[in-house]
């Protein structure tokens, strides 16, 4: 049975095609201002790239912030359930998930069967999310893709104490003005994200193995800062950015 999961996030829209435990294709596009159009577009592009016709698809599940605007989906689930299903699909032993997306970061704890036990999400503030990193990258005039590698070279990460994205940006600008090296500032930004996320993790309780998902998992600097803060190894999902979409496709197979 072929199922499709569509995850409409605040920055990107993702689709995943799954058949009997195998991932047949994934696709990521920018969401833009029209979530409904993005859902259709990412679905069609994922199918055409994987060489499938829509008639081959049995069930579709949508997730993410735009989950209710995917009108052609059979059902919508929240990204908490979808990320749990996706992580469990990739590694059945995973008991704790850190998901850092565009406007949300969350900690999810799973029971032995891979079911969601509890979750905590960031409050309304965007600090510690993908959007926060984008703002910082702009202030530092560094391509976001280089953030991870650069921060790993850091000797003494700068201290970013502000919890607010806007104030953190001005804090970063004043660090630049003081002549602080970019790598140290970037490492400091990653440590501030790690501090926020680990506070959420403490609330759900950390049980290993821990997996990180969501677009920000592709940033090795954030992963490194989290590992340092938590004192444990974090598994990066090989499907980090499309993990929610894969989870949605897995859930679709259970409908």
């Amino acid at each position: 049975m072929i199922t499709v999961g569509i995850d409409i996030g605040s920055i990107t829209a993702k689709a995943a095609i799954v058949e009997d435990g195998k991932i047949l294709g994934t696709k990521v596009i920018f969401t833009g201002y029209n979530a409904e159009a993005a859902g259709l577009k990412v679905y069609e592009e994922a199918l055409s790239e994987a060489g499938f016709d829509a008639t081959a698809v049995s069930k579709i599940v949508s997730t993410g912030y735009g989950r209710n605007s995917v009108k052609f989906a059979d059902r919508a689930f929240t990204e908490i359930l979808a990320h749990a299903a996706g992580a469990h699909f990739v590694n059945q032993k995973v008991r704790t998930i850190i998901d850092i997306g565009g406007q949300d970061s969350k900690a999810i704890s799973l029971d032995e069967a891979g079911k969601v036990k509890n979750f905590v999400m960031n409050d309304k503030c965007a600090a510690g999310t993908g959007r926060f990193l984008e703002v910082m990258a702009r202030a530092l005039e560094v391509n976001l893709d280089e953030f991870g590698a650069m921060s790993l070279k850091s000797q003494k990460p700068a201290k970013i104490s502000s919890l607010c994205t806007v104030f953190a940006e001005s804090e970063v600008i004043s660090l630049i003005a003081r002549g602080e090296h970019r790598t140290e500032i970037i490492a400091g930004i990653h440590e501030s994200i790690a501090a926020r996320v680990s506070a959420m993790l403490a609330r759900v309780g950390v049980v290993e193995p821990v997996m990180i998902t969501g677009g920000v998992a592709q940033n090795e600097g954030v992963v490194h800062a989290l590992e340092k803060k938590l004192g444990l190894k974090i598994e990066v999902s090989p499907w980090a950015q499309v993990n929610g979409a894969i989870g949605a496709a897995v859930l679709a197979a259970t409908l």
């Binding site: 912030y65 689930f77 929240t78 359930l81 949300d104 079911k115 509890n118 979750f119 309304k124």
Partner: peptide, 20 residues
Amino acid sequence: SFSESQIATRIDAFMEIIKE
């Protein structure tokens, strides 16, 4: 101080856990 889509996601996810 109220963000509808964030609150909606939390409530939906919470109810998914309770239903399960």
